[in-house]
Amino acid sequence: MADEGLRPIIVKRIKKGGGGHHGGAWKIAYADFVTAMMAFFLLMWLLGSTTKGDLNGISEYFKTPLKVAMQGGSGSGDSSSVIPGGGKDLTRKDGQVKAGDESTVKKTYNLTAAKAQLEREESQRLMTLKEKLEQKIESSAALQKFKNQLLLDFTSEGLRIQIVDEQKRPMFQVAKSELAPYTAEILREIGPVLNDVPNKIGLSGHTDATPYFTETGYSNWELSADRANASRRALVQGGMNDNKVMRVVGLGSAVYLDRNDPFNPINRRISIIVMNKKTEEGLMRDAGKLEVGTGTEGAIDAAAKPR
């Protein structure tokens, strides 16, 4: 019994711990990582498939979410926005959709009607110009005494202003291109009025059928062209913008105003055409090609009527 008190006391210490492969904490961390990557790729996909306008809406939403939610705006109720709150799904691009069906009104443009409207406006503009010229002829002492030599009418090319010869009052010196003093005065009075419209102008010189030819080959063709150019200079001197002139031609005796009498002094004239848009475009398209026909000059009974 005495030996029992001498027995050694043995203390067993149990070392706790297990193999690493038995733990599960890494699985949770891996699941969090995969979830984060999924969210990241989903965000990249949304950003790549969203328009710039919708991105701005998203940006505004996150800057002031309460303001956008309460007051509306892009990102608050658009069906195309990634922010919930409107439309049926994210694939729609029409914005908020009403419950009821609403017919879509398509805008159409009638080009023919628009062109016709522009032509009417231009015709009215040229008509107003004609009235201004007629008023100036009646009110101007310099023009009133020559009104029988000023003919105004409309042709297919636009408003035509013709200054014609009279037997006792020629516009030019015989066989020369120098303007008579009264002719230069008429042109200087008319010039500033032509600036009232944006239309371009063309000038053409005409002679009668009296033969004219020099040893150098100078004929009615050159003479009519020189007279047309002299008229252009007088218009510019009177105040007309030089860049308004689009055409200066000499037609010699090819086109008569009085077809029954080719030698009538009225056939010697300067014709000023205030061109309509169609004529301007035709000249630009055809590189200045000029077609002279009976329709452009008009008949004597209509054109020779004093204005």
Rank of each mutant, 00 (worst) to 15 (best):
Gly239Trp: 02
Thr207Asn: 14
Lys176Gly: 06
Asn229Trp: 08
Pro211Gln: 04
Gly202Val: 09
Asn195Arg: 03
Glu166Gly: 05
Ala230Phe: 02
Lys168Val: 08
Val249Ile: 03
Asn195Ala: 01
Ala180Tyr: 05
Asn199Arg: 08
Gln173Val: 00
Asp242Leu: 14
Ile186Trp: 07
Gly191Ala: 03
Glu189Phe: 02
Asn199Ser: 10
Thr207Phe: 03
Thr210Ala: 12
Pro181Leu: 03
Ala209Glu: 13
Pro198Leu: 14
Gly205Met: 00
Ala230Gln: 08
Asp226Lys: 10
Met240Lys: 00
Ile186Met: 15
Ser177Ile: 06
Asp242Phe: 02
Gln162Ala: 10
Ile186Gln: 07
Ser177Pro: 02
Leu179Tyr: 06
Thr183Phe: 08
Lys200Tyr: 10
Gly202Ser: 11
Met240Cys: 05
Glu215Gly: 12
Tyr212Asn: 03
Ser204Leu: 13
Asp242Glu: 11
Gly239Phe: 00
Ser231Gln: 06
Ser219Thr: 10
Gln173Cys: 05
Pro181Glu: 15
Asp261Tyr: 08
Leu203Ile: 08
Phe172Arg: 05
Ser177Phe: 10
Pro198Ile: 06
Pro170Ala: 03
Asn241Ile: 12
Asp261Ile: 02
Tyr256Pro: 01
Leu194Pro: 13
Tyr218Glu: 01
Ala180Gln: 12
Asp196Cys: 01
Val245Arg: 09
Arg169Phe: 14
Leu251Ser: 09
Val245Thr: 08
Leu187Glu: 00
Met171Ile: 15
Pro262Lys: 15
Asn260Val: 02
Thr216Glu: 06
Leu223Asn: 04
Ser219Asp: 01
Ser204Asn: 07
Tyr218Trp: 06
Ser231Asp: 01
Ile201Gln: 00
Met240Ile: 01
